[in-house]
Simulated scan of single mutants.
Amino acid sequence: MTHPRPVVFMGVDTHLDIHHLAVVDQLGAPLGDTQVPATPAGSAAAVVFAAGHGEVAAAGVEGTGSYGAGLTRFLTDAGIVVVEVNRPNRAERRLAGKSDPIDAYAAARAAASGRARTVPKDRTGTVEAIRAIHTSRRGAVKARTQAMNQLRALLVTAPAGLREHLRALPTHELVDACARLRPGHDLADPTAATKTALRRLARRIQQLSEEITDADIDLDTLTRQAAPTLRAQPGVGPDAAAKLLITAGDNPHRIGSDAAFAHLCGVAPIPASSGHTTRHRLNRGGDRQANNALHTITLTRQRHDPRTRAYTQRRTTEGLTPRDIRRCLKRYIARELHPILTADLAALTT
């Protein structure tokens, strides 16, 4: 007579080069732990090690969107349920200490107890492609802003003749003029050295602007392909659509309701009541990129959407401040866009 295999749970503390794996039973009792390299072969070894203790019911993985992304994909392909595990809070760490085995066992127990229930993003579809393009665009925007600030700061201390010639120009003309500067060959001369630096910064800005333009074209194409109905909504441009899609991931079923989506975007008010006082406070958590996307959509609709303009006017007469009105609108927009977003992604994956 064959006996059924015991049910076990995995927990993984992920790192750049290695992962520490722990296995517990249904009651959270430790069964063993090991260390594997952060490679496909290491992921396979982790599955073999966990399966040697019983039937793996679920795996709790820290950092499914960073160091644990490759392991998460491998476990999912192997048919193992993966849940996202947050790192232990500070109070628990002060009591239990900090080490890779401790964190791995904590992740396994979080999966076993059901405390960790968040389904990680699926990173195998069009949304992952959008995330890659958007990441490069965001980096280019930051680098261009930094280069522009450096150019203007250098212009402030430039020799008088050069400064007076360039300081009154608008930004676009300033960059073009600096890119055309001819510094000469005597770099020991402050004017020549300043012209050289300004030209290099200006050409860097031009190159980054081209990268941003190319990324915008790619995002426009990809977001229209992935979420055409979402893109048709008022105020939803390529950047805002990309941020919302990245927040949702390629598996929209993991967000069960518009309330969950609002919390994920950081636009759901948090109860802060006590005693006879009933109030809510601003939610400063959630995905700040998605929050920024909803903020952009809100501002655009307040300027151009008749329905939103009428709502803003009505709430203003009721005594709400512009900031409170925007917060209400962001929550309403999250409620409106959630079913549209999930329907578009569901159609994309079928």
Score class of each variant (00 low, 15 high):
residue 196 T to L: 13
residue 50 A to F: 10
residue 149 N to G: 13
residue 335 R to F: 01
residue 151 L to C: 04
residue 173 E to T: 11
residue 94 R to Y: 04
residue 336 E to G: 00
residue 34 T to F: 07
residue 296 T to I: 09
residue 293 A to L: 11
residue 204 R to W: 02
residue 346 A to N: 15
residue 45 A to G: 12
residue 35 Q to R: 14
residue 272 A to D: 14
residue 170 P to W: 01
residue 183 P to C: 03
residue 241 A to Y: 07
residue 144 R to D: 03
residue 325 I to A: 00
residue 178 C to M: 06
residue 24 V to R: 08
residue 262 A to S: 12
residue 205 I to R: 06
residue 69 A to W: 10
residue 22 A to H: 02
residue 234 P to L: 13
residue 245 L to M: 12
residue 64 T to H: 02
residue 20 H to V: 14
residue 171 T to W: 12
residue 10 M to Q: 05
residue 200 R to C: 08
residue 70 G to H: 15
residue 256 G to H: 13
residue 265 C to G: 07
residue 234 P to Q: 10
residue 115 R to G: 12
residue 27 L to Q: 14
residue 185 H to S: 12
residue 236 V to E: 02
residue 190 P to Y: 06
residue 103 D to W: 03
residue 245 L to W: 13
residue 253 H to E: 14
residue 307 R to E: 14
residue 207 Q to L: 14
residue 125 G to E: 05
residue 242 A to D: 05
residue 65 G to T: 14
residue 82 V to S: 04
residue 181 L to N: 09
residue 134 H to C: 05
residue 129 A to Q: 13
residue 162 L to M: 06
residue 69 A to T: 09
residue 203 R to Y: 08
residue 312 T to M: 05
residue 78 A to H: 13
residue 112 A to Q: 05
residue 112 A to V: 03
residue 142 K to E: 14
residue 195 K to P: 02
residue 4 P to M: 09
residue 268 A to Q: 11
residue 32 G to P: 10
residue 175 V to R: 00
